[in-house]
Amino acid sequence: MRARSLSGSGTPWSDRIFDVVVYVAVIFVTICTLYPFLNVLALSLNDSTDSVRGGITIFPREFTLKNYSTIFAFSGLITGLKISILRTIVGTLLGLLSASMLAFTLSRVDFQGRKFVSTFLALTMYVSGGLIPFYVLIKDLHMMGTFAVYVLPGLVSAFNVFVIRSFIDGIPYALQESAKLDGANDFTIYWRVILPLTKPALATIALFLAVGQWNSWFDTYLYNGSKDHLTTLQYELMKVIQSTTTNVDNFRGRNMVEVMAQISPESVKMAITIIVTVPILIVYPFLQRYFVKGMTLGAVKS
């Protein structure tokens, strides 16, 4: 931290104006960021017929939980919630396992395949086959209409591997050597020595993976759009939001629209938006110091 002259008397007036400008700008940005969320929250907790009158800012005028109880009566939402939670857990665990294993092998100087694996992975960051070839591949692998399509295709991410590897590179190699002298094989070293020491990096990657899984909707739309038992929360939200905008051509929803006829669609949208956002709100502030470090590490390397 830089020590600055904090006493007012010695500060030139230009610096004081500077300070005012800085604070005004930062507060303006903070309000712009936060207000929409608070507005949506207030609307979700406000009586839906009252909301139509307008004028709701960040406090509900006629408080009610009816919007929430209505949408929870809809079975698609419960299925969506289950599948979203399941894919987040499974996808995150598998992603962590693959990224950390690959990162471990790449950090080993004595591993002959190191150069090849590293290049093979790095190339995937620059070249991609594109949407259509990927879609055809998923179809040919018979993964359409399965849960596997949520967690398997994105299993290995080069970026995650490189972030973890640069972290492992910072762990003294002597630790691995002494474990080896004790007769541990490479897998044991990975599991018992490296993994526990990599926790901060793993926390970052886990957050990225979990948020990615929780937020994805396009795979549901593309591969499982007609499978009601495999729907996700984000996809349900998308159907509701798209249904009342003019984007009707993409709309494939059914039951939710009937539910919405009972109460104002706006309030339903707001309530689902909050439900989808709350889990993220609970998690990310606590992992802040990890992901800030992870981001910096990853960017420096790549």
Binding site: T30, T33, L34, F37, W214, L237, M238, T273, Y284, Q288
Partner: peptide, 16 residues
């Protein structure tokens, strides 16, 4: 606060 919008999906963002 400023990190929050990054973590919500584009569906939520587009809705907002």
């Amino acid at each position: 606060i400023s990190y929050l919008p990054h973590f919500v999906s584009w569906i939520v963002a587009a809705g907002i």
